[in-house]
């Protein structure tokens, strides 16, 4: 049963890893805007040649 100690430690470490990833994703603002990126795909940049001088 000694193997259990190793496995518990590993499983906790993995779970903590995911928890850290979650906290990081929140703090870096990845969950702040869940709408725009999806829309952005549909209007992907097509590089038109610049015709006129800007304003």
């Amino acid at each position: 049963m000694e193997i259990m100690y190793v496995m518990i430690a590993l499983s906790l470490l993995m779970a903590i890893g995911f928890l850290m990833a979650f906290v990081w994703s929140i703090k870096s603002g990845q969950q702040e805007d869940l709408i725009t990126p999806g829309m952005r795909i549909l209007t992907e940049e097509i590089d038109y040649p610049k015709l006129n001088k800007p304003l």
């Binding site: 805007d33 709408i35 725009t36 952005r40 038109y48 800007p54």
Partner: peptide
């Protein structure tokens, strides 16, 4: 998000739609 095409002074724009 293509505003930089209208004015050379604009470097980049990001929109938060919500």
């Amino acid at each position: 998000e293509n505003l930089q095409k209208l004015h050379a002074g604009i470097v980049k724009t990001t929109l938060n739609f919500g």
